[in-house]
């Protein structure tokens, strides 16, 4: 809750209006409105509304960099996976290289984003004091380190390889690094879903099994988009783009058909709009452009762009939904009433 407030006569008058409205109608359903103690009379604490309707949970404290990081890291990770797959299947070396470089760029961008959220570089090092398999954040931190290292090593080796002319050891190194970056990159594309899913926030944990796949599809779509926008128009990419968009459609449809108060933040308000926009952009829109665009490169690029924009919206939307969800005490208080949480106890 915001704690600083300098009331003036106008704001007080506005507040009084709100309170009156709240008194008459029970509540004032507008964004960011919590006039002191409203509605009138204040909602008595009850089993239904909790403690004056105040949140049970704390909102995420992450700054704006975090969803951007989810996006960048995911796309880069998927790029690394694509480059490795391309390399293994003997696809065009230029494609491999492009994908590697895009992955490396993402890998280079990710740590600064995280550090900026944390405040100071040393703080990131604290992450590496321990490795905790049960902490997605720890797994993620190590994944990021491994990915950044391997993705940039792969790109660097590639550079060396080109500058110095083919050298087997360098190429072996590049391939090894590429393989590692592919594995860790897949981690980058998916762990952020685990990171959100394995929390106490209902809108997130209700989708614990969805989010990793959702984010993976989103990452794949944006990786394809990035590579295409960098000038490639391989059919394989289009096929992958179609697959990613199809997966997004499935995810979107499943989200839209499920109901429940804890899913409301995914469908309403700014967060809901972002998630829906992200879903449409990277799902049906990207899919349609690719399907009906035939061989048009422009249409594919448009699809790629849509997937990228969609992916960004998706990440920002999901983090925002977490904020909204954390503010709603009702699902938290009533969780588990009617249903057993799917549980593992490893």
């Amino acid at each position: 809750m915001t704690r600083e407030r300098i009331p003036d006569d106008a704001s007080e008058q506005a507040l009084d209006e709100l309170r009156r409205e709240a008194g008459a109608r029970g509540a004032v359903p507008r964004d960011g409105i919590r006039p002191a103690g409203a509605p009138f009379p204040m909602p008595s604490p009850s089993a239904e509304t909790g403690y004056y309707g105040l949140p049970v949970l704390k909102e995420p404290t992450w700054t704006w960099e975090v969803p951007i990081y989810f996006f960048v890291g995911g796309a880069a990770g998927a790029c690394a996976a694509l480059s490795a797959a391309a390399r293994w299947t003997g696809a065009d070396a230029a494609l491999v290289r492009k994908a590697r470089w895009i992955a490396a760029a993402g890998a280079a961008l990710s740590p600064p984003l995280l550090i900026s959220d944390l405040g100071r570089p040393e703080r990131f090092l604290n992450m590496l004091r321990v490795a905790k398999i049960r902490s997605p954040m720890s797994v993620g931190a190590w994944t990021l380190v491994a990915f950044s290292t391997s993705a940039s090593a792969a790109a660097f080796a590639d550079l060396v390889d080109r500058r110095l002319g083919g050298s087997v050891p360098v190429r072996v190194l590049a391939d090894a690094a590429g393989a590692l970056s592919a594995v860790t990159g897949l981690g980058m594309a998916t762990y952020t879903g685990v990171l959100l899913g394995a929390t106490a926030i209902p809108a997130w944990y209700e989708n614990a099994a969805v989010l990793p796949a959702h984010f993976a599809a989103s990452a794949l779509g944006s990786a394809v988009g990035l590579i295409e926008l960098s000038g490639r128009s391989d059919r394989a990419l289009n096929a992958l783009g179609l697959a990613a968009a199809a997966a997004e459609i499935v995810v979107g449809a499943s989200l839209e058909t499920r109901r429940g108060r804890s899913l409301e933040p995914l469908k309403t308000g700014r967060a809901g709009a972002l998630i829906r926009a992200g879903g449409v952009l990277s799902g049906p829109l990207a899919f349609g452009l690719r399907l009906f665009g035939g061989r048009s490169i422009t249409m594919r690029r448009a699809a790629g762009l849509a997937a990228l924009a969609g992916s960004l919206c998706t990440r920002i939307g999901w983090v925002a939904a977490g904020h909204v969800s954390a503010r709603d005490p009702i699902p938290v208080l009533n969780a588990g009433e009617d249903r057993d949480v799917e549980g593992g106890n490893d």
């Binding site: 007080e12 507040l15 009084d16 309170r19 006039p35 002191a36 409203a38 009138f40 204040m42």
Partner: peptide
């Protein structure tokens, strides 16, 4: 409060 049109949380 009702009689004097005074609102909870107001002045």
């Amino acid at each position: 409060a009702r009689e004097a049109s005074i609102v909870h949380g107001g002045w």
